[in-house]
Amino acid sequence: MADINPIRLWRRFLALPNESLTKTLVFAFLVTFIASVFVSVSAVTLNPFYQANLDREQRARMSGMIAALAGMSDIMSGVSVDELEVRIVDLASGTFATGVDPVSYDQREAARDPNRSLTLPEEADIAGIRQRANYAPVFILRQDQALELVVLPMRGVGYQSMLYAFLALRADGNTIAGLTFYELGETPGLGARISDPDWLALWPGKMLADENGDIRISVVRGQAQSPLEIDGISGATRTGNGVSNMLHFWLGEYGFGPFLKRLQSGTLRL
C-alpha cells in the first residue's frame, strides 16, 4: 500500500538527491507553476490600472494634437476632446454606420473578432495588420456648422512594433492638418523619434494625393522635394517606411478611401 500522506510524501521528495530526475522534473514543474500563478494574478490585478493609464494618454494625445494643429487655435479655445463629435464609419461603403454606439465601440477589440472584422488579403495588407475591423471611429470638428477637421485613427507595423496614430485632415480631405502617434515601441532615439514634436511639425500642410487623385504621400530618405514627401529620419528608414505604408493602407480602398471619396464629392451627409 503506497503512502499517500502528503506531508510524508513532501518530506520524501525533499530528501531526494538534487541530481535525481524525479526531483528535477517535479521541482521544475513547481517553480514554473508558482511563477506563472504569481505573474497571472499580478497581470489580472494590475491590468485595469494600466488600461486606465493608456486611455488617459490617448485622450491627452488627442487633445494635444488638436491644440497643436496650426491655425486652429482660435476655434480651439475651450474645446476639449470630449466635445468632438465621434462618428462610426463603415469602412467598406464609406458611409456613417447607424446602430453602433460611438462611445463604447472598441476598434481594437472588434479587429480581433472574426465576425466584426475582415481578414485582409496578403497583397493588400501593406500595413501588416492582418485583421481590419469593419467599423472605425472618426472624429469630426466643426466651426459654425461647417466641417473644419476630420481625424482618422490608424495603425501599422513599424520596424519592431505596431504604430498607433491619429491623422487630422482639413475639410478638403486632402490637406494634412497634423499627425500624432499615441502608442509605439520603436527603438528609443531612432525610430521612436517619429513621435518627436519637431518631426511631427513637418506634416501640417502636406498633401495626401497628387492631381490625379493617387495617394502619394510618403516618408522619403533625406530631404523632402514636394508637398507629397516628408523628410526621413536617418537611422530609422524602416520605421519611416512603416509610417508610409500605414498611411497608404488606411487612405486606400481597404481603409478610409471610400469615406474620403464621399467626403470630397460631398455625398456624405455629415
Partner: peptide, 17 residues
Amino acid sequence: HIPTAIRLIVQITIIAS
C-alpha cells in the same frame, strides 16, 4: 533543493517573474 541540472533556469525563472 535546487536540482543541479536546472539550477540557472530555476534562478532565471524566479528573477524573470
